[in-house]
């Protein structure tokens, strides 16, 4: 019986198969490293969950994600839980293809996590860290917070530097005669004079921090700062989308920010949010909201003499309802009505 000869695969085909396999396994290896680093980053930077009794029972809504962004500028100065001077809820509505950014004034007068006292909302985190800040946002506005991300001074600088800086239009000149010099300084109370000219310019991490952190000599004080923070977030997002940085840079970017950011966003959630944005880029509606004085709030004083922002229950609840729905509006109205500790 004649020997049945095995059909030989042409050399070029074999080489092609090995080449494709090599590329695929290289990508697998690379991706595996990135995923492990990102997972490690999230795990190492997530605050331990500490139960804080919420006064409202909220559940996440389908097709929506609420991400609470928190920023502190005194995390390097003092021990204990830092204030969260920046508080912004980013609301993703997948069905409506909307992203809303809702900024909360740091001086907004609200009921504290203890449920017995009142204070500025940025002080909530002093009670029990990030869980307290989340709890106060939930109980004040009726917004279920699905995820959070917190960044301190150095984390902010490193995040901007990690993407090579940002090109941003300073929409107003920023002159500040008492800007804190607490970066790389042993004196937490030092100050310097700041002069940022208006117009398009390239800012590194430290310069971008100066732009969004300054609030002295500004007619609208913290509200001006909030406007600049939102602008920087949009610019940063734009920078990332247009960036020359590639997937190859991801591990180094995460490494540079390790320990400077706290979040419970795991790679899958990050992928989900990024996919939503990238696949619907052209059709997504993005809106920005804040409780501006005059329209949604007024500046006043607490009975203990602090300068505070008092939310207008009617207009604020209507704004919150527009973004987060009627249940949130209802809770906002009640939480901002009959607040205690405010000078008449």
């Amino acid at each position: 019986m004649p020997h049945k000869e095995k059909k030989k695969v042409p050399l070029i085909i074999r080489l092609a198969v090995y080449l494709i396999a090599a590329v695929i396994f290289f990508i697998f290896g690379y991706s595996f490293y990135i995923l492990t680093r990102v997972q490690q980053f999230v795990t190492s930077s997530t605050s331990p969950k500490i139960a804080v009794t919420p006064s409202v029972n909220l559940s996440s809504l389908p097709n929506q994600t609420n991400l609470l962004l928190l920023g502190s500028d005194n995390d390097q100065k003092f021990s204990g839980n830092p204030l969260t001077q920046t508080m912004m809820v980013v609301h993703f509505d997948y069905a409506k293809k909307e992203i809303d950014m809702f900024s909360i004034p740091r001086d907004l007068w609200v009921r504290m996590p203890s449920l017995t006292s009142y204070g500025k909302i940025d002080q909530a985190a002093e009670y029990n860290g990030i869980p307290s800040a989340i709890s106060v946002v939930e109980q004040t506005f009726g917004i279920p917070i699905d995820h959070y991300a917190w960044v301190g001074l150095y984390g902010f600088i490193k995040s901007i530097d990690a993407v090579g800086g940002v090109n941003i239009d300073a929409v107003h000149p920023v002159l500040d005669n008492a800007y804190p010099t607490d970066i790389n300084s042993s004196n937490p109370y030092g100050i310097k004079r700041l002069d940022i000219q208006a117009g398009m310019q390239h800012m590194n991490g430290e310069q971008a921090l100066e732009y969004v952190r300054s609030r002295h000599e500004d007619l609208i004080g913290d509200f001006g700062r909030t406007q600049r923070q939102r602008q920087l977030l949009l610019t940063l997002k734009q920078t990332l989308l247009q960036s020359k940085s590639s997937l190859l840079d991801v591990p180094a970017i995460f490494d540079s920010m390790k320990g400077q950011i706290k979040t419970d966003i795991n790679p899958l959630i990050a992928m989900q949010l990024a996919t939503f944005y990238i696949t619907n880029k052209g059709s997504i509606t993005q809106k920005q909201y804040t409780l501006t004085p005059g329209e949604y709030s007024q500046v006043g004083n607490s009975t203990d003499g602090q300068s505070i922002v008092i939310g207008d229950a009617t207009s604020s609840s209507m704004l919150v309802g527009k973004i987060f729905g009627s249940k949130a509006a209802h809770i906002t109205y009640h939480s901002l009505t009959n607040e205690k500790g405010i000078q008449p």
Binding site: Y30, F32, I34, G164, G165, K244, D249, S256
Partner: peptide
């Protein structure tokens, strides 16, 4: 190539602008 990919990623340093 799996190992090569993993170690390339671990060695890669960020190219800053």
């Amino acid at each position: 190539f799996l190992l090569l990919g993993y170690f390339t990623a671990s060695q890669h340093t960020q190219k800053k602008a």
